[in-house]
Design a protein around this nucleic acid. Structure first.
Length: 506
RNA sequence: GGAGGCUUCGCCUAGUCUGGUCUAUGGCGCCGCACUGCUAAUGCGGUUUCGGGGUAACCCCCUGAUCGAGGGUUCAAAUCCCUCAGCCUCCGCCA
């Protein structure tokens, strides 16, 4: 038998499963070489590098991009464009329906908008009359002036009333409009959480049975390595909190450094961002809608704890106009992330898979709307590159309509194989938010090619490395029978060159 | 935490005391045109942003808002009053 590592299974890399693959797919059996002898010329490394080409060339699913008309662009982006909504309300209705959200909301917006426009006309007329009168007053004198003042006095009240009504109608329109989610991309599979499409599968899960031992889960491994301490996390902060200790702490720093290095090399500007943000940023990114229950809020200061640095990075250019020749703008931020995880009681309670606080390196792009789909593929590509460099087996899914965030028109997740769960689980996620966040945050671009038109742009985000889940996947997939954990080469420079983490005596 | 100063249409800036003539001045930058061996210089014009109406649509025309934000006074607010925010300086406290 050729000493090939389990990751190298051409079959699984080249043939994407059909649509609607089941999530809990049984891992295909490999010809089962043990990752033995990793000291001299690690066979898994060699295998991986051969594997690398198809991974990164992105040939596999380009047809997805083309079929959706990415080339010739532009499917009209985010809702929130009132004019577009007026012209084609059915589009918005269909999108809401596919998401399983309120369809009538569309018509509520339309009628509020009608009221807004008619009250605005009324105000404009009154105000114009008032201004004209106002110009005559200082020139007039005597009885004529008294008469003018009398008429102006009457007008003042009417203007004020019309103004109030106009403001009220505009506010109502805006309030309703902001409750609409982004228009879903036409190619997104329709359905609920389980109705995703598997786009491709990379790498192959190890066959532990063939290797002759039972894999341990990440918590047991982490405890043996002296890397994870959940008991004291709970003692100090409560459930779903943890300490990373010793090599665990070092492992996080290594992951973060390696991820930032990859992003920087790809041209991203590295950023360290605030973890506390104002309501404007939180709401503008779309996290105060359906996701509101998962957001921490500090009452005393009226600030929100970010669930992702996406919030700060999207808010970074809020209320700005960006010259088109500066696009695309690409940022990679490291930040802590906080999630209340309300409604996930009893889910993933063991270990550090689902926690209230974690660190993450996030990619974020500002691009012209017509470029968003291509950029989305690029972000996905960078995520695949990252997970591949960690030598994790994973699959890429096209998330279904019902499972999209309110700001996303389309979302791809990379799910890594978790041996002890026997499933693929989300490690990264990249969303094309089209113009949704841009409109809400008033980030615009000035396009000189387009007669200096000022228009919304598109924002996209993608996880590069969500630390705890990446640690989970690393520990479980790279564990050895003796409880040690093999370290992929990309991390070694940040871990003093070591090739494995060894259990510690307690 | 305390005191003071500042915030004007890309950048800088005039205007605020003394409300209407502000349709917000000037410079820089940028765009267009003209002139010009080239470049440069010069001249002329344009250049806040966001709405609404008219129009089949575009050019365009009419109109409103916008001087950090919100509120108030007034027939009328960049200008007067109040509240808030951001930035700067100093004092106090502090990693």
């Amino acid at each position: 038998m050729h000493p090939e590592g389990p990751l190298n299974s051409p079959a699984s890399t080249l043939s994407p499963p059909g649509p609607r693959a089941v999530r809990d797919i049984e891992p295909p059996c490999t010809e089962g070489g043990k990752p033995e002898n990793r000291k001299n010329g690690n066979p898994r490394e060699a295998a991986f590098h051969r594997n690398n080409k198809p991974l990164n060339s992105d040939k596999i699913h380009q047809r997805d991009v083309e079929s959706s008309g990415a080339r010739g662009h532009r499917y009209p982006g985010g809702v929130i464009d009132l004019r577009l909504l007026r012209e084609d309300p059915d589009r918005a209705r269909a999108s809401q329906r596919a998401r399983g959200e309120d369809v009538d909301l569309v018509d509520a917006v339309l009628s509020a908008d009608e009221r807004r426009r008619s009250s605005s006309v009324r105000f404009d007329e009154l105000r114009s009359e008032q201004k004209q009168l106002g110009k005559l007053i200082p020139k007039a004198a005597g009885e004529e002036k008294d008469e003018l003042l009398r008429r102006a006095g009457e007008l003042a009240g009417a203007v004020k009333a019309a103004d109030a009504e106009k403001d009220e109608a505009a506010e109502e329109t805006q309030r309703l409009l902001r409750r609409l989610s982004n228009l879903v991309h036409p190619d997104v599979p329709v359905g609920g959480e389980e109705d995703f499409t598997v786009l491709e599968t990379l790498g192959t899960p190890r066959d532990f049975a063939a290797e002759g031992f039972e894999p341990k889960d990440h918590l047991e491994l982490g405890q043996k390595l002296g890397a994870i301490d959940v008991e004291r996390g709970a003692k100090v902060s409560g459930s779903r909190f943890y300490f990373l200790t010793g090599v665990g702490a070092l492992l996080e720093l290594a992951l973060v450094n390696a991820a930032i290095a990859q992003a920087t090399e790809a041209g991203f500007t590295p950023m360290l961002t605030p973890a506390l943000v104002k309501q404007q940023a939180m709401d503008g990114t779309g996290f105060l809608g359906q996701a509101a229950q998962d957001v921490y809020h500090l009452d005393k200061d009226d600030l929100y704890l970010v669930g992702t640095s996406e919030v700060a990075l999207a808010g970074y250019h809020m209320d700005e106009i960006i010259e088109a020749d500066r696009l695309p703008l690409r940022y990679a931020a490291f930040s802590p992330c906080f999630r209340r995880e309300a409604g996930s009681y009893g889910k993933d309670t063991r270990g550090i898979f689902r926690v209230h606080q974690f660190d993450k390196v996030e990619m974020f792009s500002y691009v012209a709307p017509e470029d968003s789909q291509e950029e989305h593929r690029r972000l996905l590509q960078w995520e695949k590159q990252w997970l591949s460099s960690l030598e994790l087996p994973f699959q890429v899914i096209d998330v279904a309509t019902g499972d999209l965030g309110s700001s996303a028109a389309r979302k791809f997740d990379c799910e890594a194989w978790i041996p002890t769960q026997g499933k693929y689980r989300e490690l990264t996620s990249t969303s094309d938010c089209t113009e949704f966040q841009s409109r809400r945050l008033a980030v615009r671009m000035r396009d000189s090619r387009d007669g200096k038109a000022v228009r919304p742009l598109a924002t996209l985000n993608g996880t590069l490395c969500a630390v705890p889940r990446t640690i989970v996947a690393l520990l479980e997939n790279h564990q050895q029978e003796d409880g040690s954990v093999w370290i992929p080469p990309v991390l070694r420079p940040y871990l003093g060159g070591r090739a494995a983490l060894e259990p510690v005596a307690r």
